[in-house]
Each structure stands twice: as structure tokens, then as C-alpha cells.
Amino acid sequence: MNHLIVPIHEIVQEEETEEIIKKFGGKKEKFPQILLSDPVIEELGAEKGNLIRITRETPTAGKTIYYRMVVK
């Protein structure tokens, strides 16, 4: 996946997913969500319950990392 304006999306490995969820309070339903039908998710081939890592370039903070949970 290589797009001019869509930032890098990647599926987080399962063990790491648990780690990240634990780091941010342990409740995955509190995470930001992304629809399974989202074009990026379709392109990635992610499944419901996968955690997506988004690496964004922002003008104020430089490179930042964001997570979104795939939901239906």
C-alpha cells in the first residue's frame, strides 16, 4: 500500500496487540474504531478484532502513531 495522502496502515501482530491494549487501559472497546468496510481495511485484508497501527506525519508533532480497532 502506497498512497500520497493515506498514511501508512499496518496490522499489529497478535502478541503486540495484547500488549498495546494492556498499555492503554486494557479495554479494547475503548479504542478508536475503523469499519471493516473501510477501503484501507479492505486493502490490508484485516479482520474484525485486528488492531491497526497508523503512522502519520503531522505538522506539529512530526511522526505519530495511532491505533484503531477493526469493527463491523
Binding site: 492503554f24 487501559g25 475503548k30 479504542f31 478508536p32 502519520r56 503531522t58 506539529t60 508533532a61 512530526g62 505519530t64 502513531i65 495511532y66 491505533y67
Partner: peptide, 10 residues
């Protein structure tokens, strides 16, 4: 619900 993982991304 989480809005940002770090306030203002930085």
C-alpha cells in the same frame, strides 16, 4: 473512549 494516544500527538 480514547481520542488521542498522546495529547495533541506530541
Amino acid at each position: 473512549n480514547i481520542i488521542q494516544f498522546s495529547y495533541g500527538d506530541d
